[in-house]
Amino acid sequence: MAAAAAAGAGPEMVRGQVFDVGPRYTNLSYIGEGAYGMVCSAYDNVNKVRVAIKKISPFEHQTYCQRTLREIKILLRFRHENIIGINDIIRAPTIEQMKDVYIVQDLMETDLYKLLKTQHLSNDHICYFLYQILRGLKYIHSANVLHRDLKPSNLLLNTTCDLKICDFGLARVADPDHDHTGFLTEYVATRWYRAPEIMLNSKGYTKSIDIWSVGCILAEMLSNRPIFPGKHYLDQLNHILGILGSPSQEDLNCIINLKARNYLLSLPHKNKVPWNRLFPNADSKALDLLDKMLTFNPHKRIEVEQALAHPYLEQYYDPSDEPIAEAPFKFDMELDDLPKEKLKELIFEETARFQPGYRS
């Protein structure tokens, strides 16, 4: 834990890192770190609560700039109880001085990944967590956004079992017609939660990839272990087919990539493993919904509104309290091709509203 900075004593240090967030945020305490930044909790002297502050230093890398800009653009436009918001952003007053960006968010005690390492969940908890994931996802999908990296560590939890989806750095506007060349190379989302079509096709992607990830998360809540822990690309596919069985001819016809289709045709026939054999203690309604989410063919996979209306979630289902976005989200430009200098300018502009004396 960093010592509390005395008023006016300059930035606090946390594990050798400068955290320049005073005077409003003090009493910093280390939480963890990701690929390009550290997260601390801090005391907000204005709202009198502890908050989470993520320090991001992305400006050396085009990919990190892209992810940072995506996350900020999306989260500043989203407003939903099951999606983490941005409360404040701290950065230098000029673009030349801006080396880091500090993002202030609600402090959540833990995440689903940490929880599943230590606790076996009751059916009631599984049901409530799944409902909140789908409630947040309904809003995301209504904005025409794909999260693309749903996994237990991106689901934040607090002691009252509130759940918030975080990390929109890989999110995209849904565009089933656009052929994202190089899709697989830039697709760094965790393999275990990846839909089979991501490994088999490169053309376009749809909201059904997020539903697949939610199915993987439900299976993990039922058993405290990942359902498809593939060691590499082909191993991942083999794990999936080992449980779902061989795809039907109709399902194979959806695979545009001939090499991928021929690979699947070359494999020995596998039978589907019954879900109640894998999860003998699970609620039968939970397994019915799991089956509809972990469907090989993305066109037959359940959609988020149908999933919310499934009998497993009937005690929570309330369409009048499951809000959607006001308007579909649009990125003005494809960020993939922009140089990091341009992305830095866009991050600077996007964060201006939090600067003292800002006038829109």
Rank of each mutant, 00 (worst) to 15 (best):
A174K: 09
F354V: 12
K270S: 04
I255Y: 10
D332S: 06
I31D: 00
E350D: 15
F228G: 00
K114C: 13
L294F: 03
N262E: 10
F331R: 01
E305D: 15
Y64E: 05
A52D: 14
S213I: 11
K300A: 09
K330I: 03
G242K: 06
M13K: 15
S208C: 06
C254Q: 07
P339D: 12
I347M: 12
D337M: 06
L338A: 09
K300F: 10
G230K: 00
I133W: 05
A307P: 06
P196T: 15
M108R: 04
A260H: 00
E220D: 14
L28H: 03
E326S: 01
D88G: 03
S41N: 06
E349L: 01
V304L: 10
K207A: 12
C161N: 02
A5C: 13
A189K: 09
K114I: 15
Q132F: 08
T181P: 08
R194I: 15
R77H: 03
R67L: 05
E109W: 03
W212H: 12
P298H: 15
S29Q: 01
Q306L: 14
F78E: 11
R225E: 04
V214D: 05
K231N: 14
I84H: 04
R191N: 07
V14N: 03
G37I: 11
W212C: 15
L237K: 03
E345K: 14
L267V: 05
K203T: 09
I211E: 13
K203H: 10
L112H: 06
Y43N: 15
Q315M: 01
R79C: 11
M108Y: 08
Y193P: 07
Y316A: 00
P280T: 15
L241T: 06
H239K: 09
P152M: 07
L234G: 12
T118L: 10
D336P: 00
R15S: 15
A325T: 14
S360H: 13
P323W: 00
L155P: 05
Q236Y: 05
Y25R: 11
E349M: 02
E322M: 03
N27W: 04
F19I: 15
C65Q: 03
L146R: 07
R261A: 10
A42Y: 00
N238M: 09
S29V: 06
I74D: 08
G182H: 13
T295G: 03
K54W: 03
I72W: 02
R225D: 01
V39Q: 08
G169A: 10
F329E: 05
P23N: 00
C254P: 07
E60Q: 08
M108T: 05
P356H: 14
E334M: 03
L258C: 04
A92Q: 00
Q315I: 04
R91Q: 04
L335N: 10
V188L: 12
L335H: 10
M98V: 00
Q236K: 14
R50M: 14
Y317K: 00
K231G: 08
I302E: 08
E326V: 14
Y128L: 12
N158L: 13
I243A: 03
I198Q: 05
I86E: 04
S246I: 12
I211Y: 13
Y358V: 09
M333L: 15
I302M: 01
G242E: 05
R67F: 06
Y263E: 09
V173Q: 12
L222D: 09
D167Q: 02
H147R: 12
L28M: 14
R194G: 13
D291P: 02
E60P: 00
D332N: 14
T159K: 13
R77E: 00
F59L: 15
L200M: 14
I95Q: 06
N201H: 10
L267I: 00
I243R: 03
F331W: 00
G230D: 14
D44C: 06
L267M: 15
Q97F: 06
S202Y: 12
D332R: 06
D318W: 01
I209S: 10
L335C: 02
G357K: 11
N276D: 13
E314W: 00
T94S: 15
H147Y: 12
A352Y: 02
F168Y: 14
K342G: 08
K344F: 06
A174G: 04
I347Q: 13
V39I: 05
L264Q: 15
I324T: 00
T110E: 13
L237N: 05
Q132H: 15
N224S: 14
R79H: 09
M221K: 14
L343A: 13
D175I: 04
H310T: 02
S284P: 04
L116E: 10
A92D: 11
T185E: 13
N262Y: 14
P229N: 02
I217W: 08
L157K: 07
T351R: 03
I53R: 03
G204S: 08
G245W: 07
A307S: 14
C166I: 11
T295N: 12
S202R: 14
T185S: 15
I83P: 00
Y139Q: 12
L265T: 05
P247D: 01
Y139T: 05
L170Y: 07
L289I: 07
C127I: 07
H178S: 11
A309K: 04
P58S: 12
L258V: 06
Y36F: 15
H232F: 00
L308K: 03
E96I: 04
E33T: 00
H147P: 05
L200Q: 14
M38L: 15
V18M: 08
Y205S: 13
G32C: 15
N87F: 03
I95E: 09
L267F: 01
I53V: 13
K138W: 10
K344N: 14
W212N: 09
N238S: 10
L170A: 07
Y131I: 02
I72P: 00
F279N: 01
A352T: 13
I198W: 08
F348K: 12
L69V: 05
G357R: 03
Q62H: 15
Y139H: 05
Y317I: 10
I90N: 14
K48V: 08
A3W: 14
A9N: 00
G357M: 13
S208H: 05
N47Q: 12
H299D: 11
Y36H: 06
D100N: 14
Y64F: 15
R91I: 02
Y64N: 15
Q97W: 03
L137A: 09
K340R: 14
T63F: 11
E345R: 02
E197M: 07
Y36W: 01
L170Q: 14
S29E: 06
G204M: 11
L290K: 04
Q306E: 05
K117N: 15
R191G: 08
H232W: 01
H180T: 05
F354S: 13
D288K: 04
P323C: 04
I140W: 12
F129K: 08
L338P: 05
A171M: 04
L75D: 04
E250G: 09
E314Y: 01
E197W: 07
L346Y: 12
D167R: 02
I302V: 11
T118G: 09
I211C: 12
P323T: 13
R135L: 13
I89E: 05
L107D: 12
S320M: 10
N87Q: 03
K207F: 11
W212V: 12
L237Q: 14
K231V: 01
L264I: 04
P58R: 04
F78R: 09
Y233C: 07
W192G: 13
L218Y: 11
V304G: 15
E71L: 02
Y317P: 03
A171K: 09
V46H: 02
G215R: 14
I84N: 15
F329G: 01
L163S: 09
V49H: 07
R191D: 07
E334G: 03
S57H: 00
N154I: 15
L134P: 09
V21L: 14
Y205H: 06
A9W: 01
Y30S: 08
L264E: 02
F329A: 03
Q236A: 07
N262G: 05
D336N: 13
K164N: 15
T94I: 10
A42G: 02
L346C: 10
E349Q: 03
P93E: 07
C161Q: 10
A9D: 09
L287E: 10
D167W: 00
K207V: 11
I324M: 05
N123S: 11
T159V: 13
Y30K: 06
V214S: 13
L258D: 07
E12V: 14
Q236H: 13
I90C: 02
